[in-house]
């Protein structure tokens, strides 16, 4: 297991290098740079040239990549053109918010999708099952900007139940538990928006996985032992049916960050997704690179975590 882990972590290094090259190329291929969008007729064009020189934007892309890579490896993510602040400070200010949003959305996903999937699988092809299928299709196909706007319209604008922006009440002065509650109150709508697609997908997945497990011979064996349907469900069916969810968990850990870009922007929720969106609009490539790299690393770590979890819960899987 240890050698397996070391090998897996080592193979991440070339993967990250490759990802960084592709990302950097894509950023460079986009027309313009951080200063072309700020054009102001009152400012002399030579000023921009000076700034480009100062930030190294006039060097060749290859040179720029190596300068970026050298700094990045040393933990120096560069200076944001827009904020005139180190990117690492910008990220560390916001990453907590994004992680909070991500965790809440994961909890929401699992606590809703698994029971809904079980309901569906208990009575397949029933009215309840078809209703849930219908909602899942809608939820799965609705883009998050639309879902976010609809939720804001309904719950913030019409019903005035939930706030539509921020992470906490401005000037609320909450501390401890009440601060946590206030933050939860603010995170509910964005977290629900973010998890809508995973709730929809997971509950379908749980449903079919349970239906498949119910057909297995060992379920019949368990029933033949005299165990009741609910015990068989809990002890034999669910254990087997929920194992494949781990794969989805590993993949979606990274996707949470990606999905957060739109969601955080709509809810003006100050996380790194929103930072990323600003970064793209302003061609602020140190931000784009840093957040993309974090996102890529999360995907890789998520997959590694999924593989480790597999070995923990499924006795058939052992890594040499």
């Amino acid at each position: 297991m240890t050698t397996y882990l070391i090998r897996r972590i080592l193979t991440m290094i070339p993967m990250m290098v490759l990802i960084s090259v592709i990302l950097f190329t894509m950023v460079q291929l986009a027309p313009g740079d951080a200063f072309s969008g700020q054009f102001d007729p009152r400012v002399d064009a030579s000023y921009y040239e000076k700034m480009r020189e100062k930030f190294g934007l006039n060097k060749s892309p290859v040179e720029q990549y190596f300068i970026w890579a050298k700094n990045f490896v040393q933990g120096e993510f560069g200076l944001s053109f827009r904020h005139r602040m180190p990117v690492s400070d910008l990220i560390s200010d916001r990453i907590g918010n994004t992680v909070f949003l991500g965790v809440c959305s994961l909890i929401l996903t699992y606590s809703l999708a698994i029971p809904l999937g079980i309901f569906s699988a208990n009575k397949p092809y029933s009215k309840l099952d078809y209703t849930l299928t219908g909602f899942s299709f809608v939820g799965y196909s609705m883009p998050s900007f639309l879902a976010g706007l609809l939720l804001i319209y309904l719950f913030s604008f019409n019903l005035k139940i939930f706030p539509f922006s921020g992470t906490e009440t401005a000037g609320g002065g909450y501390e401890g538990i009440s601060l946590l509650l206030d933050r939860l109150y603010h995170v509910i709508l964005p977290a629900f928006t973010l998890s809508l697609i995973t709730i929809a997908g997971y509950n379908r997945f749980v449903r079919s996985s349970i239906l498949e497990a119910k057909q297995q011979d060992y379920v019949r064996t368990a029933r033949a032992k005299g165990l009741s349907k609910s015990v068989v469900m809990r002890k034999h069916v669910l254990r087997n049916a929920l194992i494949p969810l781990i794969t989805l968990f590993g993949l979606d850990l990274g996707l949470l960050l990606g999905g957060a870009v739109i969601t955080e922007t709509i809810f003006t929720y100050p996380g790194i997704g929103q930072l990323y969106f600003e970064g793209i609009v302003n061609r602020d490539y140190p931000i784009i690179m840093a957040v993309s790299m974090i996102s890529a690393l999360t995907v890789l770590l998520g997959n590694l975590l999924a593989d480790i979890l597999y070995a923990v819960v499924d006795p058939r899987i052992r890594y040499e």
Binding site: Q216, D217, Y218, R220, T221, A222, A224, H236, R239, N240, I243, V313, D314, P315, R316
Partner: peptide, 11 residues
């Protein structure tokens, strides 16, 4: 049962 390979719960 007939199939001892699948009649026991793998986990």
């Amino acid at each position: 049962f007939q199939e001892p390979m699948t009649s026991l719960n793998p986990v």
